[in-house]
């Protein structure tokens, strides 16, 4: 396949400009959602909390601060890691359907690629942590690697099960985001399968907390234990890049959950046909969906729990969540045997 199609120049411009717009808009909404999340947590804890625009101010402040490279660090890796993290999350956004629109590069990469791209920012965090030569960062990096390997398995099982079921319904490539969007998983299943898919959604919500590195899975940063862990030596612009990549990754991960499980658009249901109003309605509906997923999978969980130890977190994923997804997969299989 020719990557850029027939009108090479026009497509190249669309992709470059479009990528910039997608990443910028997602970063803005990611920061906004982080602000909303912090405000909601504060209210649930009986605090006033920071203003919703606080994450923007954090970014602004970090941009003005000095970036310190510690003595003993590996300078090139130490500075490259934040860039790698933010670029990887930016690329990730291009393969995920956002705002009710198909993914910008959806034709060129499927959900397997998305899974790989989700790992890259974590790897950048790990590399940055190891490169900073602090014992706290080293411990944090080790923990990040363990937690990353732990949630990979349930995540892969979820994606495989969904793609397998969709693959039965259509001849199109079931791993493409557009196919998953065209055949919502719930419509393909009977009652048993719906129960299975609900288990999948539960497991994916727990994986989302891990991907977003929030309590109870903020083990790699664990402020009271290892003083910020793999980010302990980062400051200024470098820290800002990590912060931004963290925010965008949380947004993208939730968008993946939305794309896998709630790929519905609102405009067909209320009978809006024209392109522009339908686009606006779907975009807003997408934001609502992201908010709902984020509220239940990140905000509520992090308000109501204590931090796990690394061994406990690992067993939650490797044993409990894997078991949950396997049961879910079994239910979906039974469902397709019966019906």
């Amino acid at each position: 396949m020719n990557l850029l199609g027939d009108n090479i120049w026009i497509n190249a411009v669309i992709i470059i400009v479009g990528s910039g717009i997608v990443v910028a808009i997602s970063a803005v909404f990611g920061l906004l959602y982080r602000g909303v999340d912090r405000k909601l947590v504060a209210h649930m804890q009986g605090r006033v909390g920071p203003p919703i625009v606080q994450p923007f101010r954090d970014v602004q402040k970090l941009l003005m601060k000095e970036s310190i490279i510690p003595r003993g660090a590996i300078p090139w890796l130490f500075t490259a890691a934040p860039f790698l993290a933010v670029v990887a999350t930016g690329v990730l956004l291009l393969y995920v359907p956002l705002f009710g629109q198909p993914a910008l590069l959806g034709r060129y990469g499927d959900v397997i690629l998305v899974l790989y791209l989700l790992i890259v920012p974590s790897l950048a965090f790990v590399a940055g942590g190891f490169a900073s030569s602090s014992p706290y960062a080293t411990v944090g990096s080790q923990r990040e690697m363990i937690i990353m390997m732990s949630y990979e398995l349930p995540l892969a099982v979820v994606v495989l099960a969904i793609a397998w079921k969709i693959g039965q319904a259509t001849a199109a490539n079931p791993f493409l985001m557009s196919t998953i969007g065209a055949y919502p998983i719930w419509t393909l299943l009977g009652p048993v399968g719906v129960a299975g898919a609900a288990l999948m959604l539960l497991a994916l919500a727990v994986v989302t907390v891990g991907e977003a590195a929030k309590v109870p899975f903020d083990i790699a940063e664990a402020e009271t234990e290892i003083a910020g862990g793999l980010l302990v030596e980062y400051s200024g612009r470098n820290l800002m890049l990590f912060y931004l990549s963290d925010v965008i990754k949380a947004f993208a991960m939730v968008a993946v959950v939305v794309a896998l499980f709630i790929p519905y658009n609102l405009s067909p249901y209320i009978g809006v046909q024209a392109a522009l109003p339908a686009g606006i309605i779907d975009g807003l509906f997408f934001l609502v969906k992201v908010f709902v997923v984020m509220f239940f999978s990140i905000t509520l969980i992090r308000t109501g729990m204590a931090r796990f130890k690394i061994s406990q977190a690992s067993s939650v994923y490797v044993l409990a969540m894997t078991a949950v997804t396997l049961v879910g997969m079994l239910l979906i299989w039974i469902d397709s045997m019966i019906f």
Binding site: Q45, G46, V215, D218, A222, T224, G304, M305, A306, R307
Partner: peptide, 11 residues
């Protein structure tokens, strides 16, 4: 707070 349960800390 030491075990990362900030909600209980505030409570």
């Amino acid at each position: 707070h030491e075990i990362g349960f900030d909600t209980v800390f505030y409570l």
